[in-house]
Design a protein around this nucleic acid. Sequence first.
DNA 1: CGAATGCTTCGACTACGATCGAAGTATGAA
DNA 2: TTCATACTTCGATCGTAGTCGAAGCATTCG
Lengths: 227, 227
Amino acid sequence: MKEGPDIARVAALIGDPARANMLTTLMSGKALTVSELAEEAGVTIQTASSHLSKLNEGGLLRPRKQGRHKYFSLANDEVAHVLEGLMGLAAGSGHLRKRTGPKDAELRQARVCYNHLAGDMGTQMFDSLMTRGHLILDDDTLKLTAAGEIFVSNFGIDLTVLHKSRSPLCRECLDWSERRSHLAGSLGRAFLSRFEYLSWARRDQKTRVVSFSPHGAKEFEQLFSIK
Amino acid sequence: MKEGPDIARVAALIGDPARANMLTTLMSGKALTVSELAEEAGVTIQTASSHLSKLNEGGLLRPRKQGRHKYFSLANDEVAHVLEGLMGLAAGSGHLRKRTGPKDAELRQARVCYNHLAGDMGTQMFDSLMTRGHLILDDDTLKLTAAGEIFVSNFGIDLTVLHKSRSPLCRECLDWSERRSHLAGSLGRAFLSRFEYLSWARRDQKTRVVSFSPHGAKEFEQLFSIK
DNA sequence: CGAATGCTTCGACTACGATCGAAGTATGAA
DNA sequence: TTCATACTTCGATCGTAGTCGAAGCATTCG
């Protein structure tokens, strides 16, 4: 009965509401200070400090000191991946948050999932890339085809840089709101930052919402249309 | 601050030691009764019953009544996937169980991960399939090649049956002990049951250990050698 | 140097939930 | 019907962990 890693320890770490709020907030990919995270979680700074040191102890966070500030971000995308998985389970069992505020619709349309685009537009982009043969999913692995490489390069993404990254180029990520796949990995990240560079979209500072400008939405729609 | 699914609820569910033990045990893929799970978790039957109804409530389990027994298994492989992810995090942050008994070495060599082969032999099989070009991993999706289809069929696995399954044929699964990928999905499952059918290996009833016979290990080694 | 800001540590309070004994329900066997 | 087995519900107890006030460090600024 005592085999394998201590799964309960990590899960209990994520299982506290205050800590879960912090982690969810950090899914935006941004590094945040103790006080910012305290406010997000709705607890005092002392409490937040205690929680954050526990999360850090558990290897879920990466701390960086900068002057008198201390910034926390998620430790790696393995952590982000597990969190997204938990969101999938939570959404699947119908346990959504009680207060589905006005933000919810925007969140479902387009949001940041750690460092790439998720939500309705994320899955649309993924589907478009798949149906056009830019990506192929063979049983369980996602691959960028030759046609896909041309497409990506034409869009202004430098693949040679991405190939140097240790993390996988393409990765499939299950969307909790859509229950369908969207594109993660370094390519997913590159797409999102390219959208920002082209001013098609910008990330909301407080939430995980990604807002597309009218022009950006039009371009996006054209580029990733599903005929 | 209140966005997205209630991740804390699910995580807290997994975060209790007794419940985590039960879930880890169920990773063997077998359906177990309340009393069996109680013993595994080291609690009384009353307590186990309470835990199991909570896990069930949370959508993590699939209950089946059979006479006066009640069997529980994991709800789906999405759940199994999240659990394996958590094991990866737990193993990564060095929080292995205190008592690393004699079983530990066996577990690392070959074990069941929900319904497919994991551990050292699991990753060896995966690597062999990759280097021989039977599987290709394109950025993020795993695919069985034409050569792979022939190889698999020659080994006695009927692909037409597998293609009818709803779950993906190949799936990459990160191994907590090896920190490398092994093969999941319906093909991974098919391989394991084929090993059992050929009497190359058998699953231990109590633990998740997979024991290969001397003959089976030899055949395995030959079939999945890494030159 | 003080004053202010950002974070951590300490200590005490509190509440939630895990636990088990005992009683209750359901299924199967004699 | 009666007994046994498998599980569930109830009620009481007990610990652990989250919470915050207050005090303690550390860093920056005037």
